[in-house]
């Protein structure tokens, strides 16, 4: 029965979208989009226009997004506290290949994530993507060795300092150029397509990358060691 319902829902959605999509696709840019497209590179200096929009033109929304991410991870961490007294089946330890491979690959994966968020203003990517890749590197270590515990104090400190630095960058914009999270006055715009360019955008993205990476790593650690046990535990 569920299969039929799923199939009918998919067909209905396809029909609706087939009719609606040509209506919604405009043929020329609106006024705001045209300003971004024409003046984005000149005003911000970085070659990735999406990063300029996310961090500069819509920087305040990104601050809200970082707050939402922090709240969700904090909520999950609060709900999944470790409870004592539950039986957990002993896992089979990972094989030699997985353990050695994880230790060897952890550093290049973290380096790759750092590359993504440091070059956020030049290549596609940025803070959120780079932070997710860094958290995947930490996940590699957690998968290879289940009893590894991450230093939660250090991760919490790193995350809080990064979030604080984001607001500090905004206040520096307020002090130097007159508006919160302004880009022009704080750091020089530099020449196009160089690493040291685009004002304070790379600094903000580095801070976001560190914050997201440490947040997601702490969340993965909490989830793996949370109480709950296996499905059989719930039936006993």
């Amino acid at each position: 029965m569920k299969q039929i319902v799923a199939l009918v829902a998919v067909v209905l959605l396809a029909v609706v979208l087939w009719r609606l999509v040509p209506l919604a696709a405009p043929t020329q840019l609106g006024p705001v989009a045209r300003h971004y497209a024409e003046w984005g590179v000149a005003e911000n200096g970085g070659s990735n226009l999406v990063t300029s929009i996310v961090v500069n033109y819509r920087g305040f929304d990104t601050l809200g997004e970082v707050t939402v991410l922090f709240l969700s991870v904090a909520g999950a961490g609060f709900v999944l506290r470790r409870r004592h007294g539950l039986v957990v089946h002993e896992p089979i330890p990972a094989s030699e290949i997985v353990q050695t491979g994880a230790r060897l690959l952890f550093a290049p994966v973290v380096l790759f994530g750092a590359y993504i968020f440091v070059h956020g203003h030049l290549t596609p990517g940025g803070g959120f993507q780079g932070g997710a890749v860094v958290a995947s590197g930490v996940l590699l270590l957690l998968l290879a060795d289940r009893d590894r515990h991450l230093p939660h104090g250090f991760l919490g400190l790193l995350e809080s300092l990064s979030g604080f630095s984001y607001v500090l960058a905004g206040l520096a914009g307020l002090w130097a150029a007159g508006s919160f999270l302004a880009n022009r006055g704080v750091l020089p715009l530099g020449s196009w397509n160089r690493l040291l360019s685009a004002g304070i955008i790379p600094v903000i993205y580095m801070v976001i990358g560190l914050k997201v990476g440490s947040e997601l790593a702490a969340l993965l650690d909490v989830m793996m060691h949370a109480a709950g046990g296996d499905g059989e535990e719930a039936h006993r």
Binding site: H89, P108, V109, S136, L139, L140, L143
Partner: peptide, 17 residues
Amino acid sequence: VLSFLGVMALARYADRG
């Protein structure tokens, strides 16, 4: 870089890891 993580997690799921 990241593709093998999902498959490895599925394999570790079987090991209860």
